[in-house]
């Protein structure tokens, strides 16, 4: 019986294809990553069963931290510039062109109108550490937030704007009510509340509707 010859093979594996794939995936993740914007306050928002995505364009977000400080945030730099110019003219804030530019790049603002020039005069590092007292919303008149909302409405006029409220679990209800009042006085009644998704409890009516296969609407 002849001996079976086993051919000696090199153990070398060509890694090129592997490298290609790994870098392709890497590129995907780098491009898909969106960095979290700097936020002056940490807000822990509540859970809900709502599964809708948070709108990200044309959004005006009011953040309320657990001490009741109110901040505003807008996604669009163009809109931010417009609202700053608008406010500067109507309320004599005395902002310079440089201040407005800072505002355009600022992540969120939580100071009364009177303190805006001071805050926007800082560089970004100082601004991050500056204590912001929050926009005054003292009572059901809506305080200064009323004017913010009004100006935002005029800036976003003609667009489908999302009015987003992001509040902390521990925020006291009276503050929330005052913020809602600021919107209400501008005839805005529809909001999006920022929440964390959790599943509907098993056996509840919502759970049953979600269990059904998607029907045509």
């Amino acid at each position: 019986m002849p001996k079976v010859k086993v051919a000696r093979k090199s153990t070398w594996v060509d890694m090129t294809a592997f490298v290609d794939v790994s870098f392709l995936i890497l590129t995907f993740f780098i491009l898909a990553t969106k960095f979290k914007p700097d936020e002056p306050v940490q807000v822990e928002f509540p859970n809900s069963v709502s599964a809708d995505a948070l709108p990200e364009t044309d959004a005006f977000m009011v953040t309320i931290d657990k001490n009741g400080r109110v901040f505003v945030q807008m996604d669009d730099p163009v809109a931010r510039r417009k609202i700053a110019e608008n406010m500067n003219n109507t309320r004599n804030l005395g902002l310079s062109e440089a201040n407005i530019k800072t505002f355009t790049n600022a992540p969120s603002i939580g100071v009364p109108f009177a303190g805006m020039k001071n805050l926007l005069g800082m560089n970004s590092e100082e601004m991050k550490n500056a204590a912001q007292p929050g926009i005054p919303v003292p009572d059901s008149t809506g305080g200064e937030l009323y004017y913010w909302v009004r100006d935002a409405m005029s800036v976003y006029a003609g667009k489908k704007t999302a009015w987003i409220i992001k509040a902390d679990n521990e925020t006291k209800y009276p503050v929330v009510r005052n913020v809602l009042e600021a919107f209400k006085r501008n005839d805005l009644n529809k909001f999006q509340l920022v929440t964390k998704f959790q599943d509907a409890p098993i056996g509840s009516p919502l759970w049953e509707t979600r269990q059904k296969p998607a029907e045509k609407k």
Partner: peptide, 26 residues
């Protein structure tokens, strides 16, 4: 390559916030 992929996977935000519609009476 895979080290970097692992980094990006771990830093990616997994649970995006959701929005709850809320309508006040007019």
């Amino acid at each position: 390559g895979f080290l970097l992929i692992t980094f990006f996977v771990f830093t990616a935000v997994v649970n995006k916030p959701t929005a709850m519609k809320f309508i006040l009476p007019a």
